[in-house]
Amino acid sequence: MGRESSERPTYTILAIITLKKERILGGSQLALWAENEEQQKTMTQDIAKAMKADVVKMKNGDYLIIRV
């Protein structure tokens, strides 16, 4: 990608919503633990709507909320 990564837009990770407590290791973003998938989806959507942000579903099942 080269220079592309330094061009706008810059992304900020606002939150991570996980199903496994041990994956919460810290960092500047909000890290939340959900009890089940349904709760995880709802939490993700609520935060994303409020923050007008985008959502990435990671292959390991965690959700990232990202703002451009």
Partner: peptide
């Protein structure tokens, strides 16, 4: 892109 994390998107 993989920014379509929700069903709505």
């Amino acid at each position: 892109s993989n920014l379509l994390g929700t069903e709505n998107a």
